[in-house]
Simulated assay, not measured.
Amino acid sequence: MTESADFSKPDILCVGSVLWDIIGRSTMEMQRGSDMPGRITRLPGGVAMNIAMTLARFGMKPAVLSAIGRDPEGDELVSACGHLGLMTDYLYRSEDLPTDRYMAVEGANGLIAAIADAHSLEAAGDKILRPLVEGPLGSADAPFEGPVALDGNLKLVLLDEIATHPAFARSDLRVAPASPGKAERLRPFLTHARGTLYVNLEEAGLLCQDQFTDSETAAQALLARGAARVLVTDGGQSATEADASGHRTQVPPRVTVARVTGAGDTFMAAHIAAEARGEDRDSALASALHAAATYVSGEPPL
């Protein structure tokens, strides 16, 4: 684990990918094979990282649990985390695994293609959970009490362990797939009816082995499959939050799309922060949609 001057307890844990995002953006529409002028940036990213950064902007104190290499890229990334207000005391720093990376290309018409290289996170496996299972954050006898944000870059076997392990028995699990290609890794949370799932329409379809045309139908189908609570988004069309007590559907604000990578993570973080502030379910959903729309427009989500 890394050293830090602040050992105060975090109020949320973000478990999953913390890596470098390498994003190429063009202001022109792009198709397969397009070669366009644009900008290429390298920023701290990963689902867990994006959620943690947004939570910090909303005034929460998140700790990230992930695997980061002891290479120069890893040292830079840990330093960047600290500057962004994230606690890095509980990171697993590997001597032999490189720091993970994500690469995406975006055009005016949205995401064109992306590759997530989270092999080091997958290889580290349950080592990243040691602070939660063996202390100091918690153990099977003294589970962590509070919200835990999980992302689908974790292996299926690890997500299944989290869904059933006594060290998470009192945790408020908030779970999101890293991408549609990894949506099926969330099945343990359907099987064991644990946590709150944050998915888009495509991911909901993959989990239910079906196709949906709206967020409300998808949310109801996920509940029927065993989900305890879900939030389903459908881009600029709608978003639905649902559990056994009922559901609510809202339409996000209309904005000009300037970026898409990280929008779902922003939505999830803003929703968690809104509920932590004590907002009711309708207000929390509205707050999350507003933050995501602001982010997509190119502005900070505050």
Rank of each mutant, 00 (worst) to 15 (best):
F212R: 07
P180Q: 01
Q211A: 15
Q211N: 14
R187N: 13
T191D: 14
P180K: 00
A176Q: 08
C208Q: 06
E203G: 11
N200A: 06
F168C: 09
V175F: 11
F189D: 06
Y198V: 12
Q209I: 02
G195E: 07
L186C: 06
P188F: 06
F212D: 13
T191F: 07
R194A: 08
A178T: 02
Q209D: 12
T191N: 05
A183Q: 05
F189C: 11
V199Q: 11
Y198A: 13
L201S: 05
L186K: 05
F189R: 04
D172P: 01
L206V: 13
A183L: 07
A169G: 09
L206I: 15
E203I: 06
L173N: 08
D172Y: 03
R170K: 15
E202F: 06
S179R: 07
F189M: 12
V199P: 05
A178I: 08
L186E: 01
P177H: 06
E203H: 10
V175L: 07
S179L: 00
F168S: 07
Q209P: 04
R194F: 01
L207G: 10
R174Y: 07
R187A: 13
P180I: 04
D210W: 04
G195V: 10
A183D: 09
F189E: 13
N200Y: 07
E184K: 13
